[in-house]
Design a protein around this nucleic acid. Sequence first.
DNA 1: CCATACTTACATATGAGTCAGTAAGTATTG
DNA 2: CAATACTTACTGACTCATATGTAAGTATGG
Lengths: 211, 211
Amino acid sequence: MAATRATARQPAAADRVVKPHGPTAAKRERILEAAMAVFGAYGYHKGALVEVAERAGMTHAGVLHHFGSKEGLLVAVLQYRDGEAVAGLDAREQVEGPAFLRHILDTVKENTERPGVVQAYTVLSGESVTDGHPAQEYFRERLRTLRHKIERTLAEVTGNSDPAELRDAANTLVAVMDGLQVQWLLSPDEVDMTRTVKRTLDMLLDRLSAA
Amino acid sequence: MAATRATARQPAAADRVVKPHGPTAAKRERILEAAMAVFGAYGYHKGALVEVAERAGMTHAGVLHHFGSKEGLLVAVLQYRDGEAVAGLDAREQVEGPAFLRHILDTVKENTERPGVVQAYTVLSGESVTDGHPAQEYFRERLRTLRHKIERTLAEVTGNSDPAELRDAANTLVAVMDGLQVQWLLSPDEVDMTRTVKRTLDMLLDRLSAA
DNA sequence: CCATACTTACATATGAGTCAGTAAGTATTG
DNA sequence: CAATACTTACTGACTCATATGTAAGTATGG
């Protein structure tokens, strides 16, 4: 009886820090991987737990057992993405200065090879601007972090210190990266993401250095 | 406003076709307006016909009577948007050359006053990259048209004729406009859309002129 | 008086979350 | 070291809410 229910325990939602090891962790990852694929393919609202479960090799109740709710699963997916060093744009640690700019370019290039990930990110961030969307805070925070990091880097690299110019430049770079993804997903042949981002970055550096 | 848009009229044979006039057309517009608000606020999938109907002052069956299906409604909304001169980015007719670039800037500025419209566009275009989304073809085509128009204009204005450079520049401009909207919707205070797009355009013109 | 614009009522699907129970571990302790 | 207690990872069978679409009937204005 009620041997279930380890999940929806009241004591704060942030007790998920405990990382399960071994087969359990592996199963969780399979679910997260499946969820990312499903949310990417259909969006959060249209994406069904049943399909996530199917792809992960269990029933939807099993998925719920691990993540408590659909929203919980989404949050976990987002965090999981951040945890993966590979395609993470934010570079939470010590990549600073010019290296960070190179890192951005590398990431864009890598993304070209992973349409699934790009699709998930694009769909979810678009959906996030709807009223009361659970991923809203996540994307707001993500943009904030990224903007600041880019601002700092651009200031450091170009010597420019005009706050408005730096902010606009940072927002531009982020916008180009995100905006190109939509175009690329819809018409891959019309967009060269890597080259275009590179050019934008060069332009921004020129501009900021000149002033 | 008034009895614009005989929209979904394809027959052509009999030009005596009864185009919805007077109160009928007005009611249709109320529905489209409501639908845009609802799809903007919740996305296409989460947005419910019942709510569209409520805002338009009828029952959901009434809405279905006019548009046949939810998908039909979405398509109509998209076409309706294009029909409105005001915030339409594409400028399908005779705005050419520098005037077109000014038109773009004006539109961005106007958009700042219409968060609802921006939200609808952003949400829907994001959703459109999901598998089998009904708005996919619409956005693909829209991007194509816009890209070509911008390419032509930039070539004309700067004298540059490198196809790759023009394409990248056009894609960049579109990406910046779309990308900034997401950022702006999430954190309006951190983004100055008008100024940032203006700067981007200037940079692109510089760059293309220089080469 | 009839096409058009609806309404009420219904049919039907789908999807999230609940619950009880089972099978398999992992401690615990006598 | 084995019997017992407790936990984890599920499944299957619901519930309940929500959503699209349909059918049949009513009202109305040209």
